[in-house]
């Protein structure tokens, strides 16, 4: 049995990809599962989705995948904010969407696993017209792991996407052709911690009735890694009115000593409301 973990962001279609992969495997006569991990995270937040594929026996396991054979990452930014290789088996493979070459990625990220890279964002932009890479990455996955035949993916994609299917099939095929694979080497980079400061309490330490005694403890939780764009302030244009502060749904815009405003990037989700509502256009959203 082969176990797969997908890393994407809410809204990027990782759940759909996993389902399409399972359908493709089933069409080849294999057994397969696809399911997301269920959490309160919303659009833009890092999400996990799982597959199991077994060539000849039914799959009994119903739990999430802790030790995947394959990890596939839809969003290049996730590499630097979540531990994508957590639990990945030593002989496993990491399939990445990245604009970087295999050599560059190798110097940044390493471990005993094999690597496969493809610039899925650029392929999706070209073939589908939008940077949604879920179907594109299916092509990369097929190439890097041979878990299903490329042709088996076509039918499920056609069925799921109807009128928009053609671009998705083409993107999937193009990624199949362009995926580079190789062995990683080098040093493992330091990864930022998701949780700062305190450890999570154990279940024995929680009070009965789910009583929480530390007000505002969610402040520990980083939502800044949901962001794909960040707001940048131009002090020349700012009249220090505070509208950006007022409308931020996170309450993470702060006033500096000089009276200007800035976002606390630990929380800023990059929604762009501050930039849209600033009447002097002092705020620009720039890609992370």
């Amino acid at each position: 049995m082969i176990e797969i973990r997908w890393h994407g962001r809410g809204g990027q279609g990782a759940v759909t990809s996993a389902e399409l992969l399972a359908l493709a495997a089933i069409s080849e006569g294999k057994f397969a599962q696809a399911f997301p991990s269920f959490g309160p995270e919303r659009r833009g937040a890092p999400v996990l989705v799982f597959n199991r594929v077994s060539p000849n026996s039914p799959i009994r396991a119903r739990v999430s995948v802790a030790h995947p054979d394959i990890v596939i990452v839809l969003d290049p930014g996730l590499l630097y904010i979540t531990d994508v290789t957590s639990g990945l088996k030593e002989d496993g493979i990491l399939v990445l969407n990245t604009p970087k070459s295999l050599v560059e990625i190798r110097s940044e990220l390493s471990g005993p696993w094999r690597l496969a890279v493809v610039n899925a964002t650029s392929i999706a932009r070209e073939m589908i017209g939008v940077p949604i890479v879920n179907t594109t990455m299916l092509g990369a996955l097929a190439r890097a792991t041979r878990i299903v035949e490329l042709d088996s993916l076509t039918e499920p994609i056609l069925e799921r996407f109807g009128a928009r299917a053609r671009g998705n099939v083409d993107a999937c095929r193009k990624a199949y052709e362009e995926t580079e694979t190789g062995e990683p080497a080098g040093i493992v980079p330091k990864r930022p911690k998701i949780f700062e400061g305190e450890e999570l309490p154990t279940w024995q330490e929680l009070l009965p009735g789910c009583v929480l005694t530390k007000p505002g403890s969610a402040r520990q939780y980083r939502t800044g890694d949901w962001r794909s764009e960040r707001p940048v302030w131009d002090h020349q244009r700012c009249i220090k009115c505070g509208i950006c502060y007022l409308f931020c749904p996170e309450g993470c815009v702060k006033q500096t000593k000089e009276g200007y405003f800035e976002a606390d990037l630990y929380y800023c989700k990059g929604c762009g409301i501050c930039a849209r509502e600033c009447w002097t256009e002092a705020i620009k959203m720039v890609e992370e």
Binding site: G216, R219, Y266
Partner: peptide, 14 residues
């Protein structure tokens, strides 16, 4: 407090 997990741009959280 920030650190809540509403979608980005959520009007309800605001």
């Amino acid at each position: 407090a920030p650190g809540h997990r509403a979608c980005m741009g959520c009007g309800e959280a605001l």
